[in-house]
Design a protein around this nucleic acid. Structure first.
Length: 436
DNA sequence: TCTGGGGTCCTAGGACCC
DNA sequence: TCTGGGGTCCTAGGACCC
């Protein structure tokens, strides 16, 4: 590809942000064409909130994150199809999309449905290139995406927003070739809250300063913004002006924590059920930990009642338990977690959620200090072999083929998933079939 | 009756030290 | 009336993202 040379006078590098349209809904539609043209929503765990909506569902006024029960009657009236989230399917589709996109330019995967590409010294019309990328994803995977291009990540994000909202751009908005006045006119029409990094709180405060559009923020005094808010906000202003303050991170930085938490399908009062939940969550998190070749030095456990039920007595508590030495052994981590749970558990409450965090993560291969009274290598070796075997069996024979007995088998507390679609691409038993 | 889950970064403030 | 100052480290909580 036509890369620039170090001696080049001007290197106009551009960022692109590729974002799946209504990603979860689109994934479902790939395997179930009957969902096309109809209002569809994908629900969060426990069928709690709407986390993805088709254009038709958005048109009905169903907002992002709205509790499902609040819009259920409206949905029924208009024949909205609700699906429980099927993360296994979405993750698999995401992997396919990301590996395709990675063939076009250096890539940073930003989320399950978004990535940045970096065009440095590309001697071509990037708008045309963008259309090529877009069509490739559509043809090969059946997923619709929009593409935003700009000289900084923040502008690429904004361009993507514009590409999604304004049909004029045909899915690819390239701010890189726009004259300054045209760019400013465009920015003047965008609410400041749409800018990447400006959330609800910041938006409110900016409004008080009479900064209401992306253009107004671009023209704001950077030092003032830095002093009043944070260095992050200051960076956003710099980026809006076309000066990169954020680079492309091709290698994902090592995780700093691994979290697993779930709301329960029903209120939980029994200590034994909380123990089961905590054991299950630690099992899941420890799998992820080993998958990334990391060890955890601490386990944080928390439980709480349902804050939305004002009439109920409320309780929330968490505790961090430090291990004598970093570990990825499910059994050791579980023992620490349950020890913590015993410290924070109180009877007489209706708990609706428990969660665990593996913290202080270190690479498994890094030289580490061995605890003074740690077991000899034979014990550690045995544990390692056991865990490797556990992962292998579960990968081959299916999730939870082998699990700690403490995780329970009945799992009354398990979350609700009443509308789940099959795992079309990752389970032999659920392979896609013709639906029409 | 029913309100998600998994992350990161930044800041303020306290503890502690010299 | 007087009651330093500055640096570092840690933690909790806020804000943001998808």
């Amino acid at each position: 590809m036509g890369r620039g040379h170090p001696g080049d006078q001007i290197r106009l590098a551009m960022f692109a942000l590729i974002d799946g349209n209504n990603f979860y809904v689109s994934c479902e539609r790939v395997f179930n064409p009957r969902l096309m043209g109809r209002p569809v929503v994908v629900l969060s765990n426990n069928d709690g909130c709407a986390v993805a909506r088709s254009e038709e569902a958005k048109a009905l006024g169903i907002k992002m994150g709205v509790p499902w029960f609040q819009v259920q009657s409206l949905a029924r009236k208009h024949g909205v199809i609700a699906l429980s989230s099927n993360y296994t399917l979405y993750a698999d589709m995401s992997n396919r999309m990301m590996s395709l996109l990675g063939q076009f330019a250096p890539q940073e995967i930003y989320s399950i449905d978004e990535c940045f590409l970096y065009f440095d010294g590309f001697q071509m019309d990037l708008t045309v290139y963008g259309q090529t990328i877009r069509q490739r994803i559509k043809h090969w995977l059946g997923l619709p995406v929009c593409i935003g291009i700009g000289p900084t990540k923040t502008l690429a994000k904004l361009a993507n927003h514009i590409a999604k909202k304004q049909p004029y751009w045909k899915g690819v908005c390239n701010l890189g070739t726009l004259p300054e006045t045209a760019l400013n006119n465009l920015l003047a029409g965008i609410e400041v809250g749409e800018v990447w990094g400006i959330g609800r709180r910041l938006r409110e405060k900016l409004h008080h300063l009479n900064i209401r559009t992306a253009l107004a923020l671009k023209c704001a005094d950077t030092d003032l913004i830095g002093r009043m808010f944070s260095i992050t906000a200051k960076r956003t202003v710099t980026e809006l002006r076309g000066m990169p303050a954020l680079r492309l991170d091709e290698v994902a930085p090592a995780r700093q924590q691994i979290l697993c938490s779930r709301s329960f399908g029903m209120p939980v009062t029994l200590y034994s059920e909380l123990q089961e939940a905590v054991t299950s969550y630690i099992t899941r998190a420890a799998e992820k930990l080993r998958c990334q070749s990391l060890l955890a030095h601490a386990v944080h456990v928390y439980i709480h009642t349902n804050p939305h039920r004002k009439r109920d007595a409320q309780y929330r508590q968490g505790i961090t338990v430090t291990l004598t030495e970093p570990s990825c052994d499910t059994i050791k981590l579980t023992r620490a977690g349950l020890w913590g749970l015993a410290r924070i558990y109180r009877t007489g409450y209706r708990y609706n959620k428990a969660g665990i965090m593996l913290m202080e993560l270190v690479p498994a291969d890094a030289l580490r200090q061995t605890a003074l009274f740690a077991h000899g290598t034979t014990m550690a070796d045995k544990a390692r072999t056991l865990m490797t075997t556990l992962d292998l069996v579960n990968r081959r024979m299916g999730k939870d083929t082998l699990a700690l007995a403490g995780a329970g088998t009945v799992k009354n507390w398990h979350m609700k998933r009443n509308h789940k679609s099959p795992c079309y691409t990752t389970e032999w038993k659920e392979l896609a079939e013709a639906h029409c």
